[in-house]
């Protein structure tokens, strides 16, 4: 009797609580939206200002009249000047081919090694995968001076080939790490069945592993691209003439001449150089984030 009345008395209470929780959640939602908007505005100040400045003439910039955050006379002249500038085109071409080679080399090395480490195994393969992860933690700024000497022996100082040799060292460890994760998640039954069916290892890799792990391959490829496209230290240290410069160094070192800053031009160059990564991330961001967080959230 008393028990029954107690439950009856409790009955309406959860409902009231649910109501207040819904209101609380709605408030939390709106607060979140407002705060996120503030963060987005702050985060987008530099890219916004980059684009605004790139649309200004040097006259408008140096006049210092009025609000710098708006353009009075928007013009694409800066962009046009860069497109017709042979030096800037050279930087762009250098960046493109160095990046293409870096991505190809890195992905080939990473996929072969990851396949071997996740499926075939040999004495010491465990040590090697740990070692690969460890090299990922070695930053480029630790080794750039001995590498300067080594590039000198190889005759690669002031040659973009130095970058083709060195960028894979930055990309391969993490790419291999991502690929090991994706390859290990492929059920063993799949390749065992293929082995029994008489498939060779190259066939298993090409017909099963690469198609199944395609999201991982996309993630690793984006990583290699990002590393190569944005790298600054190695090209700054090893390439000193303008015709060998990549975009980052070309813009930072060559477009800034003395104290006469052509900021409209520089910002237009930055915007154009930042466009390829932004386009790639717009379409493939989900793959990249999945690849980045896959290893971390498993534990």
């Amino acid at each position: 009797m008393s028990g029954a009345s107690a439950t009856a008395g409790n009955m309406p209470r959860p409902k009231a609580k649910v109501g207040s929780m819904e209101r609380q959640q709605r408030i939390a939602l709106w607060v979140s939206y407002i705060m996120l908007s503030i963060f987005v505005v702050i985060f987008l100040i530099p890219p916004f200002y980059m684009i605004i400045t790139s649309l200004k003439t040097s006259v408008e910039i140096s006049a210092q009249a009025g609000n710098p955050w708006i353009v009075k006379d928007p013009t694409l002249a800066n962009y046009w000047e860069l497109l017709t500038n042979a030096a800037f085109r050279r930087y762009f071409i250098n960046s493109v081919w160095v990046t293409m080679l870096t991505v190809t080399i890195s992905m080939t090395i990473a996929i072969l090694a990851a396949f071997s480490l996740s499926r075939m195994g040999f004495k010491g393969s465990q040590v090697l995968s740990t070692g690969v992860f460890l090299t990922y933690l070695v930053p480029p700024s630790l080794l750039f001076i001995p590498l300067f000497q080594i590039m000198g022996w190889l005759g690669l100082i002031n040659s973009t080939w130095a970058l083709v040799v060195l960028f894979p060292t930055l990309a391969v460890p993490f790419c291999t790490w991502i690929m090991i994760g994706y390859f290990s998640s492929i059920p063993r039954e799949l390749d065992e069945a293929a082995l029994i069916d008489g498939a060779s290892y190259p066939q298993i890799l090409l017909r099963i592993f690469i198609p199944v792990a395609l999201p991982g391959i996309i993630a690793a490829t984006i990583f290699a691209f990002t590393v190569s496209w944005g790298a600054f230290l190695y090209p700054l240290a090893y390439l000193y003439s303008a015709d060998q410069a990549t975009l980052t160094v070309g813009i930072v070192r060559e477009l800034i001449k003395g104290d006469v800053f052509a900021w409209g031009l520089i910002m237009a160059a930055c915007a154009m150089a930042a466009a390829p990564p932004i386009i790639i991330y717009t379409f493939l961001m989900d793959y990249y984030i999945a690849g980045l967080t896959a290893g971390a959230t498993k534990g």
Binding site: P47, M50, G230, F232, C270
Partner: peptide, 11 residues
């Protein structure tokens, strides 16, 4: 996403 060298230049 923007290459750091380029956004630093903007800063």
């Amino acid at each position: 996403v923007i290459p750091l060298a380029l956004s630093t230049l903007t800063w």
